[in-house]
Computed example of a mutant assay.
Amino acid sequence: MVLEGVVATRRAGGAAFTLTIEALRLEAGSLVAVTGASGTGKSTLLDIAALARRPDNATVMAICGTDAAALWARGAKDALATLRARHFGYVLQTGGLVPFLSVGANAALAQDLAGRRDAAHLVALAGTLGIDDLLARMPASLSVGQRQRAAILRALAHRPALVLADEPTASVHPDMAATILALLADQARQAGAAVLLATHDAPAARAAGFHEVPLQPGPASSRLPALLPA
């Protein structure tokens, strides 16, 4: 994934906040943690990267060989949805599991949307995450830590090229937070995926092997400095 010269403005109650992404290039196996205080644009950054939010301007938005900026310009929502389904796995703060589907069905849905149904891979991944005995359970019956592991299972089940995680440890005990970050990093590495993590816990992210990139706040704005491979 390559993002260059991307600008997004969020407006609420007459106020405006602008996020500028100078340059962000993620390759297979990259582990990047974007850090910053609440309100500095971490979630906005992930939504832009996930093609869930249209930027105001974008010099380059290249996703797995596709010009996403051109798709936004044409209003090609179906093509953007296909890109998201095939190439992205998203771990939300609260897990974001479909409440009326079991853990296994949530992960299978991600595989189906990507056109990559692989029951054996799903079961093996669940075993590595320690939730193979929870596949038939409904999300409401799980603990917070179990839900986050289930969300990681869903995010990785279809072998995405890019995994996005928005404060995935914000609501769990510090010991569980370390476990979740380590599992997310290890499983993404094994799958050959890049991981873009938004977190307020920089020490935990660094301990899990993530390269920290702090957002640089300014008046009603934040900037992500250029991050290119060495």
Score class of each variant (00 low, 15 high):
6 V>Y: 00
7 V>T: 15
9 T>S: 15
13 G>N: 08
14 G>W: 09
14 G>K: 05
14 G>I: 05
16 A>T: 11
19 L>Y: 04
23 A>E: 08
24 L>P: 01
25 R>F: 02
26 L>M: 13
32 V>K: 00
35 T>F: 00
37 A>K: 08
39 G>F: 06
43 S>K: 02
43 S>I: 03
45 L>T: 00
48 I>C: 06
48 I>N: 03
48 I>H: 06
49 A>H: 03
52 A>C: 10
53 R>M: 15
54 R>G: 07
58 A>G: 10
60 V>M: 01
60 V>T: 13
65 G>K: 12
66 T>Q: 14
70 A>R: 15
73 A>W: 04
73 A>M: 07
74 R>A: 15
76 A>S: 11
76 A>L: 05
78 D>F: 03
79 A>H: 10
79 A>R: 14
80 L>P: 04
82 T>M: 10
82 T>S: 15
86 R>G: 09
86 R>D: 11
87 H>V: 04
88 F>V: 06
94 T>G: 13
95 G>Y: 00
96 G>M: 12
99 P>E: 07
100 F>E: 12
102 S>R: 14
106 N>L: 14
107 A>D: 13
109 L>V: 04
111 Q>K: 10
114 A>L: 02
114 A>C: 02
114 A>I: 00
115 G>V: 10
115 G>I: 13
115 G>N: 11
116 R>G: 11
118 D>V: 09
123 V>N: 03
124 A>K: 11
132 D>C: 03
137 R>D: 05
138 M>V: 02
138 M>H: 10
140 A>W: 05
143 S>C: 07
144 V>K: 14
144 V>R: 15
145 G>R: 05
146 Q>V: 09
151 A>T: 11
152 I>F: 08
155 A>Y: 08
160 P>A: 06
161 A>C: 11
162 L>S: 04
162 L>I: 15
164 L>F: 09
165 A>T: 04
166 D>W: 00
168 P>S: 07
170 A>R: 07
171 S>K: 06
171 S>Q: 10
172 V>N: 11
174 P>A: 13
174 P>L: 12
178 A>V: 05
178 A>K: 13
180 I>D: 01
180 I>W: 04
181 L>C: 04
182 A>E: 12
183 L>V: 05
186 D>W: 01
186 D>K: 08
190 Q>A: 15
198 A>R: 01
198 A>N: 05
199 T>P: 01
200 H>G: 12
201 D>T: 07
203 P>T: 10
204 A>R: 15
205 A>H: 02
207 A>Q: 14
208 A>R: 04
213 V>Q: 12
216 Q>S: 08
217 P>N: 07
222 S>H: 13
222 S>C: 12
225 P>C: 05
226 A>V: 07
227 L>N: 00
227 L>S: 00
228 L>E: 14
229 P>I: 11
